[in-house]
Amino acid sequence: MDTKKRYDWVDAAKGISIILVVMMYAAHNVGKYTGETGFLHYVIGFATPFRMPEFFLISGLFLSQVIGRDWKRYADRRVVHYFYFYAVWVAINIVLKVGIAGRDPGAMLSDLAVAVVQPYGVFWFIYMLGVFSLAAKLAWQFRLPHWLVIAAAAGLQLAPIDVASYAVTQFCAYFVFFYLGYAASPLIFRFVEGAAARPLAAVLGLAAWAAAEAFLVFWPDGTLLPLDMKMGYAAFPPLHLTLAVIGAIALCVGSALLTKFTFMDWLRRLGQHSLAVYLAFTLPMSAIRIIAMKTGLTDTSLLSSLVLVGAVSAPVVLYLIVKRTGIATFLFERPAWAHIPGTPGSRNPAPVAAPAE
């Protein structure tokens, strides 16, 4: 297996994943104020079954390379890592939106406290990556067989469970995909690379999948709403779970095909820095929408597309400025104090070199 190609398609898949995430928020953010649906609503409607499952499945692909580490090093890399960035960016957003713009210090402090136990806003998926990594490590520690964990996680996903705790609700909805990415990673890599080696068959297969996906999502009563998507047959829980897994794999295959074209290298590069976009897209998204609407632009399709491009591009520009100037590096890199003592990157790292990931 070609390691470089493997990482290329994974990065491209991450690039598509972040575009889909920002696209959903951009479309819904615009739809909230225009009261209409646009072109991007159709794309997001089509991707509804697999959009977030794909994100979590890819996040679990390389877990097997680190899950056997001691608890300290594992927790630093797979738990503290995500919680640090969650804490930093949630604090920034709450302070700016509630404390400064909203001029409500009391609500700001309340939101900051609640965000510790209740995932805040669009940052819930960063929070859940830490929780999922912890749960997977516990399953490994207790030697639970993959089939048992997958069966239990699939049962939770099929329920579906919706409780007051957003963390519990999202755990039940998405842990199965994260764990599948981890447990089935060798099979996924073989399948994707095998499909990429037969591009004609892969394209035909993707076309057939896309047609079936569109039919099941929009038929017989699939409805696009400015802030949501009501699915057709795809809303049936067992079918929804199946479509989520198939769609996630299809997106990986499509990513592998796209890496064959040099002009698509931007997608791979975007995927390499997808965390920066995940963290920083919300503030420019709202700012661009507000400014554009003040100029008189109200066409939902055009406005949401503009917001999407700006919300993806702005964090990349910010990341490059931070890297070039060395100012505010804590936004995208954990400082030494934010590492568990004795782990790589901490003030007093252990003398043993960390294996490559």
Rank of each mutant, 00 (worst) to 15 (best):
W89N: 06
D8F: 08
G38F: 12
T325P: 08
L148Y: 03
P355L: 06
Y174H: 08
K260I: 00
G247T: 10
I92Q: 00
K72F: 07
Y74C: 06
L112Y: 07
W124T: 07
L40V: 12
A234N: 02
R269A: 01
A314T: 12
F56H: 00
I150A: 01
M229A: 15
K72G: 08
L306Y: 09
Y25C: 05
D299E: 15
A167H: 02
Y182A: 03
F215I: 10
V22Y: 08
T259S: 06
V217P: 07
V192L: 05
A154G: 05
A115E: 02
Q157S: 09
A207I: 14
P238H: 07
T34F: 11
F189H: 08
A153V: 07
I288K: 11
A167N: 01
P341Q: 07
M108L: 09
V95F: 08
Q272H: 05
S313A: 15
W147N: 02
W266Y: 10
L156I: 05
V116M: 03
R269G: 01
A101Q: 12
A244N: 06
G102E: 04
P226I: 03
G194F: 07
N29W: 10
L303Q: 08
I290Y: 15
R6H: 05
L200D: 13
Q65H: 13
L138I: 09
S286A: 15
A151C: 05
A183N: 04
I290T: 14
L302E: 12
A167D: 01
G60N: 07
L251Q: 04
A159Q: 13
S301M: 09
T3G: 03
C172F: 05
G38P: 13
I58N: 00
A27D: 08
S286F: 13
F39W: 13
P53T: 12
F177Y: 11
L270G: 14
M293R: 15
P335V: 11
Y179L: 00
M231D: 01
P160E: 13
I340H: 11
A101K: 13
S64H: 12
V316S: 08
V253R: 10
A91W: 14
D8R: 07
A250Y: 09
V316I: 15
A184H: 10
L283G: 04
Q157T: 15
D8A: 15
Y74N: 03
R347Q: 11
V312P: 12
S274E: 10
V80R: 10
L243K: 05
R51L: 14
F62L: 02
L270V: 08
T37S: 01
I94G: 04
R334Q: 06
R78D: 00
P355H: 01
A211K: 02
H339T: 05
I44Y: 01
L239W: 10
R51N: 06
D8Y: 04
M264F: 15
I290R: 14
A87C: 11
A173G: 05
R69C: 00
V277Q: 06
